[in-house]
Nucleic acid binder design. Structure first.
Lengths: 158, 158
DNA sequence: CTTTCCGAAACTAGACTGGTTACAGTTTAT
DNA sequence: ATAAACTGTAACCAGTCTAGTTTCGGAAAG
């Protein structure tokens, strides 16, 4: 039932927003307004993205966050690794009986399969960049009836 | 940080155990002893596997669980779907601003990427069967120094 | 009818998530 | 220097999921 946390979704959303407003610093309040959450939640995620070298943040008047790299150079895999410090996708059961044929070696076998599955998932994320996401979002937006042809004219969460 | 629950690992462990003891019913107590957990935890997981048609369970004296299908016909993907009723691997953030260019369409784009990632992971699980796991576990066991050449001679959790 | 076994409910402690408030520190502008 | 704007971080909370445990009812076998 438990899913990977929505930090991933929020992080990609924010990075796409920063790619949209590529040249100006964006405050956590503006980002939170677009994501519809609390500014502290955004700042927590920005901390992870900053540690990963994906964004640069400036405090003070006129401060905010900006992309530290080009949107084409930021893959969703980097975002995933920045906001989910998880080493394994699947949890292993703790201490199976080591004296029987199954319990003694099941963990090594499972570890191999689980690693393959995790890497396959990460392989998909590695092939998508923030620029891809931003482009697809814009395409969807302009494809709608009544959509504005100039995205910069949209609501800016001022 | 949160991972997919260890129910998956326990389920594969138990199914490999049942493949090992293919012809006799195994009680939840014996399975729990091999997994090193509580019999009720095993029974909960067996309920999911039974609903998925992977095992058949008999109550009463001499009862227990047996594989309902051949180990070669049970993939880890079926096990995954049996014990994790999750529809999505990644959580979506709840209600982004629909009036701005990013928030209005980010969810559809993210949904596509997340689905691809989830399916890539499931594709790996679909290619591994319980028979594969059992065979690899046996290979690892016999490859160890001092390992018994006949796996049925190992501790049986009686 | 007793034993063995499953199924299910109820309860617990621990962990993670997302949200919130609060406050210290830093940068800019005046 | 002082005020304003913004980040960073700690602390706390409620909700959810997980895994474990106890308990009890019911089914099957002998």
């Amino acid at each position: 039932m438990s899913t990977i946390s929505s930090r991933m979704a929020v992080a990609v959303h924010v990075l796409a927003y920063l790619a949209w407003r590529r040249d100006e610093p964006i405050t956590s309040e503006r980002m939170a307004s677009s994501v519809n959450t609390n500014p502290v939640v955004v700042r927590r995620i920005m901390g992870s993205l900053r540690n990963a070298g994906l964004v640069s943040v400036q405090p003070g008047v006129g401060g905010g966050a900006q992309l530290a790299r080009e949107p084409e150079d930021i893959t969703l895999l980097e975002v995933y690794r920045a906001v989910e410090e998880k080493e394994e996708l699947f949890a292993m059961h703790s201490e199976p009986c080591r004296h029987c044929d199954i319990g003694g070696h099941i963990r090594e076998v499972l570890h191999g399969v689980f690693c393959n599955a995790h890497q396959a998932m990460q392989g998909v994320l590695a092939q998508v960049t923030i620029a891809d996401v931003f482009r697809e979002v814009r395409q969807q937006a302009t494809g709608c009836v009544g959509a504005k042809p100039e995205p910069h004219a949209a609501v800016q969460h001022a």
